[in-house]
């Protein structure tokens, strides 16, 4: 078989789809990035969906994780809840929320540049689904980070006269930070990957729009079909890679240098 692009074109012929070799050209065509349904708009929407979901998930998960880790009460419920959530397919949850909740939302206006006109009723189920997805990794890692704090260290803090709140905020939180950030990282990666299915619902975009709405119905078209779908999918992968690197950088900046970064265990906690 011919090497490089030749091999790819032969392989693609077997699938009856336009060649994978067309993807680089599709991605480097300026007109595919600009315009109302261009990649830049989709990329911005994708980032907004992700950031909103992860922020809400952090607001929910971090306080609960800190309290459960500190008191040790409810740890069984936390682990059980996180595992149960992982078994629920995100796509099914999103469609269920869309069918149940969206008809009851009668707000059709826009909210600044964040939510376009008419999109709110579709956005609520998507964000709810993404939050449900993002809570377990952040929650379990925060909880595990606090729980695994050396008891000698918290005893010392108490001996110095710290109140329980101070022990949590000034001792356990900084020590749990590396593990917490690992949880946030895995939540971000999962949310970026899953936010592609937002494009499935009306009025919504994100990079999934390019895949499901633009691409899938005309998959055999060499311009807007398969090469465009795969191109947009590669942008999702690139976004995930960049987000991972940025969060690793944040971790370097805010984690106390005195704490060695745990790696082996944090990976396992990823669903």
């Amino acid at each position: 078989m011919a090497a490089g692009g030749g091999a790819l074109i032969i392989a693609s012929a077997g699938s009856g789809l336009p060649s994978v070799g067309l993807v680089p050209r599709w991605l480097t065509t300026a007109s595919h990035w600009t315009g109302r349904h261009g990649l830049l708009v989709s990329l911005r929407e994708h980032v907004i969906y992700t950031v909103v979901a992860v922020l809400i998930a952090m607001i929910i998960a971090i306080p609960i994780g800190l309290v459960v880790g500190h008191t040790g009460k409810g740890s069984f419920a936390v682990a059980g809840f996180a595992n149960a959530i992982r078994a629920v397919p995100a796509f099914g949850l999103m469609i269920l929320l869309y069918v149940l909740v969206s008809p009851k939302i009668h707000f059709h206006g826009s909210i600044g540049w964040l939510v376009p006109r008419g999109a709110f009723a579709s956005l609520v189920p998507v964000e709810a689904m993404l939050v449900v997805l993002a809570v377990p990794p952040i929650l379990t890692n925060t909880y595990a980070g606090v729980r695994d704090t050396d008891p000698a260290v918290t005893d010392a803090a108490r001996g110095m006269g710290m109140r329980p709140r101070q022990v949590v905020m000034r001792v356990e939180l900084p020590i749990a930070l590396p593990l917490m950030l690992a949880g946030i990282r895995s939540a971000v990666l999962q949310v970026i990957a899953t936010a592609t299915i937002a494009g499935f619902l009306p009025f919504l975009g994100g990079l999934g729009y390019q895949i499901f709405i633009n691409g899938l119905p005309q998959i055999n078209d060499p311009n807007v079909g398969y090469p465009a779908m795969l191109g947009a999918a590669l942008v999702v992968a690139a976004l995930a890679g960049v987000a991972d690197l940025v969060l690793l950088g944040v971790e370097r900046l805010i984690v106390s240098p005195g704490l060695a970064r745990p790696t082996a265990r944090t990976r396992l906690l990823r669903p």
Partner: peptide, 23 residues
Amino acid sequence: GLLYTIPSIVLFLALPGIIGTKI
């Protein structure tokens, strides 16, 4: 670790082009 960060939809879409299966 790198393979694990690839979103699933990317693999589902790329594999037909790589191994020659139908979509």
